[in-house]
Design a binder for these strands. Structure first.
Length: 710
RNA sequence: GGGCGGCUAGCUCAGCUGGUCAGAGCGUCUCGUUUACACCGAGAAGGCCGAGGGUUCAAAUCCUUCGCCGCCCACCA
């Protein structure tokens, strides 16, 4: 089949993309070690490690956007002659994965406890084997040019070793300690969570104003409604059931209203425990009555108050969200809400409810299962953050690491400035076991992903070839919601273990929302599935659609129209190639001839060129500069707009039209040269179609490794 | 309580440090089968650039106040 016949067939992404991807993989050039075989490499290598998707995930628009961004950079750098590595991998995603597999079990009427720890973990491995790489296959469909031979998983044996070494390093340094504290507890996942693993939701709740009688008031008649004003103190609470664990009533030291009560004693209703009325600065005078009940067993702030004031603490709610023995016989075994109803009704009967107000609550929920978090006192492992946070801050302050856009560094600093020690233990089964005797807990999944930029390259083996060659990496591209959860932790981990920043630039992607500005949610069926888009328009069109819209905002209202535009653009390019190659002449289009034509490419100074020829060449030069500049500054949308406008409106609408009426050898050669350059420029953005045309043109080498226009 | 975005044609958005900046894509309308492309070409309609005030010879573009919409952080129970 000759060139014209190939091009006469309409562009069929599905068929071509699969073929081209196989061609790339077969070439081996995704692996940087093979690049030197094709041409002389620049001395500077270039590396991006992919933010490892969870093995539970399937590709969503955010992943797709991020993958395309990274692929553009990688492809450009590869074409520029850098030894380029895009290292792929997946994250075991502790709680998320455990939950998914638990759900599977539930369908069979089983729980993880039926199986036992070992069997359960086996099940997860089976599950991982079956579904864990789904998302990677999806990335391939998008055209991601990752070096799959270097694929990493956060539970690989060597990675596990790295995690263990890292933990022990901190431990020996005295930075890891065990503490009995109130932590965020998920009663469904049965584990502690860090502050960053909570999500907040607004809910309508109530604020109960409860009278706590003063100690000198003899409370005898439960039906009495004659409690004089001066004989009680009113506290406001959103969670009456926790009062069973109260150990004090606190007011602000400056609060004149309560000055006469400092040091006095109140009687905790129902329990009839004597509790002190104390002064503590944590209490806001303006809220409620200015007096707050102190429940150190179930509230982080209250625990801090109790710490300061040397108060005891009672656990009245257990880890499953049920009332404990310490809550008293009448309540033991009740669920939280049952206990709440019962308590409120008793208090009402006793005339101890002053009033009930509507109140908008901000409820903390588990980011993996959505259950309401119960702050719960428990034994956990913590990592001291003071030093690490300081290192992490310095790296960005000194400009060694830059956020793009810069504004996101504020989110980073805000968190680090107010950081608390990191609760790194989790009471789940799927994860890295804490490497200490007699501890069943596993590590926070983010503890292991914090090591990602160097553990993937061979650390702790400091002589590992990849580590030497590719660390530090250049770019981290990710979403803003994990700036602290992940990015900050990678930075301090890298500084601690590698003594060097893990990357120079952090690209924070816009969040992909629906066209109406809603958050995409698979479970709610809101949003677009990138795989369906690929089927509909082809991967290049999706890549185009995403990048064309990425103009630098913090949100992107994704609209499919731009994928339509991308598809049309593919068609345009396809037809341009048909025209150009026809003009150049069938007979000339053979491997050797094309190269010769390119060698004899007219330069602007060549005397035979007409005004139009010079113009198009000049414009081409100009847009090459702009595109390079935009890519350097990670302005992907702008770069693509420039290429698009040039190809369509300058090259096709003007020059090609001109060439129809004016035929000459120079024009032919100019057409050829411009087209040759366009294909290279466009390749990182739309790799499949450009590679296919390249292939049709008869080049021996892949466009994948053709030199980038400078 | 603190912070960050957005508000420009019907829709999704460009317009950085002020003076062809009133634009693109999609949609709509008119015309066109000129052999690369109708997934196209030529052209048209459509916006007082969220509101007010200010700076300036000149503002969508700078300052300020306000209004919506969205997001993030925080120990107001």
């Amino acid at each position: 089949m000759n060139v014209n016949e190939k091009l006469l067939k309409p562009y069929n992404p599905a068929e071509i993309e699969e073929k081209i991807y196989k061609l790339w993989e077969k070439s081996g050039y995704f692996n940087p070690d093979n690049l030197s075989k094709s041409y002389k490499l620049k001395t500077k290598s270039y590396c991006i490690v992919i933010p490892p998707p969870n093995i539970t995930g399937s590709l969503h628009m955010g992943h797709a956007l991020n993958a395309v961004i990274q692929d553009i950079l990688i492809r450009q750098k590869r074409m520029q002659g850098h030894k380029t590595l895009w290292l792929p991998g997946t994250d075991h995603a502790g709680i998320a994965t455990q939950n998914v597999v638990e759900k599977e079990l539930k369908k069979q009427g089983l729980t993880r406890h039926n199986l036992g720890r070992e069997k359960f973990i086996e099940k997860i491995w089976e599950w991982k084997k079956k579904y864990g790489n789904l998302i990677l296959d999806q990335l391939k469909k998008l055209g991601a040019s990752c070096d799959w031979s270097r694929l990493k998983f956060t539970m690989d044996p060597d990675y596990a070793k790295a995690v263990e070494i890292a933990f022990l390093h901190y431990y020996q340094k005295g930075w890891i300690y065990q503490g009995d504290r109130v932590v965020n507890w998920c009663p469904r996942c049965q584990t502690s969570l860090s502050d960053l693993e909570l999500e907040y939701e607004d809910e309508k709740g109530k604020l109960w104003y409860i009278k706590y009688p003063l100690a000198n008031f003899k409370f005898q008649d439960t039906n009495s409604k004659q409690i004089p004003n001066t004989n009680y103190i009113v506290v406001a609470t959103t969670r009456p059931e926790t009062m069973l664990g109260d150990v004090a009533v606190a007011v602000n030291p400056k609060d004149k209203r309560y000055k006469h009560l400092f040091g006095k004693t109140a009687i905790l209703p129902i329990i009839n425990r004597e509790i002190p009325i104390i002064a503590d600065q944590a209490v806001e005078m303006d809220f409620g009555t200015g007096a707050v009940k102190v429940t150190p067993g179930h509230d982080i702030i209250d625990a801090e108050i109790a710490d300061r004031q040397k108060l005891p603490s009672y656990i009245v709610i257990d880890q499953y969200g049920k009332m404990t023995q310490e809550a008293g016989r009448d309540f033991e075994g009740l669920k939280i809400l049952e206990a709440r109803v019962k308590i409120v009704s008793i208090l009402e009967k006793q005339g101890l409810i002053e009033k009930i107000e509507d109140y908008d609550l901000r409820i903390a929920k588990c980011y993996r299962c959505g259950s309401i978090i119960e702050p719960q006192k428990s034994k956990q492992w913590f990592l001291k953050m003071a030093e690490l946070a300081k290192m992490a801050k310095d790296a960005v302050k000194k400009g060694k690491i830059k956020f793009h856009p810069k504004k996101w560094e504020k989110v980073y600093f805000d968190w680090l400035d107010n950081i608390k020690d990191w609760c790194i233990s989790r009471q789940i089964w799927w994860g890295h076991k804490i490497p200490l005797q007699g501890v069943d807990d596993v590590l926070d999944t983010w503890f292991s992903s914090a090591l990602w930029p160097f553990a993937t390259l061979g650390w702790p083996n400091e002589k590992a070839k990849d580590l030497k060659e590719f660390y530090p990496t250049q770019v981290l591209s990710t979403a803003r919601d994990i700036i602290n959860l992940w990015v900050a932790r990678m930075i301090f981990s890298s500084l601690e273990f590698m003594k060097k920043e893990p990357f120079k630039d952090i690209i924070i992607n816009p969040t992909v929302l629906t066209r109406d500005g809603k958050r995409m949610s698979k479970s709610l069926g809101i949003g677009t599935n990138p795989m369906e888009l690929i089927e509909k328009y082809g991967a290049d069109a999706i890549r185009f659609g995403l990048i064309y819209q990425m103009m630098g905002g913090q949100d992107m209202h994704f609209s499919e129209e731009h994928c339509v535009a991308g598809k049309k653009f593919c068609n345009k390019i396809w037809n341009i190639s048909r025209f150009v190659l026809t003009q150049i002449g069938n007979s000339k289009i053979q491997e050797t001839n094309i190269k010769q034509i390119l060698k004899s490419i007219p330069r602007r100074q060549a005397g035979k060129l007409q005004k139009e020829d010079k113009q198009i060449l000049k414009k081409l030069e100009k847009i090459i500069k702009s595109v390079n500049k935009d890519l350097e500054q990670y302005r992907f949308g702008q770069a693509l707009h420039i290429i698009y406008d040039f190809i369509w409106h300058e090259f096709a609408d003007h020059y090609i039209e001109y060439s129809k009426n004016n035929k000459s050898e120079e024009i032919q050669n100019t057409l050829c040269f411009v087209f040759y350059t366009i294909l290279r420029l466009l390749h990182p953005f739309m790799p499949f179609i450009t590679e296919e045309i390249w292939h049709i043109m008869g080049f021996k080498n892949l466009l994948l490794i053709e030199r980038w226009p400078q």
